[in-house]
């Protein structure tokens, strides 16, 4: 009973996080302007990181934690770089 309960709730939260990634991806693809796309990318990597954490709980493997940490760090750097580019890129144009 307990194992059924926990397996189904982990599966449910993975599906919900997948839907959230879909929403963020939609905003990233459709976004009318560049800053919307960057915002979508930012939300997408946070959701993906959370999905990796749930995979880590499901398989009891700490390697998922390492990759989630790397996604958190590199995603931050990439969002900062993109928004810096938005601010400085047009000055040159």
């Amino acid at each position: 009973m307990t194992e059924l309960f926990i397996i189904w709730s982990i599966l449910g939260s993975q599906i919900i996080l997948g839907l959230a990634m879909g929403c963020a991806l939609f905003r990233m693809v459709k976004g009318p302007r560049a800053q919307d796309r960057i915002l979508g990318l930012d939300a997408l990597y946070i959701n993906g990181m959370l999905l990796l954490l749930t995979f880590g709980i499901r398989t009891a493997n700490t390697i998922y934690f390492e990759s989630a940490l790397i996604i958190a760090l590199l995603g931050f750097v990439s969002s900062i770089a993109f928004s810096k580019f938005l601010m400085r890129g047009e000055v040159i144009e």
Binding site: L17, A24, N47
Partner: peptide
């Protein structure tokens, strides 16, 4: 998280 993404 899903509600946040729906808000997006």
């Amino acid at each position: 998280t899903l509600i946040g993404s729906i808000g997006l």
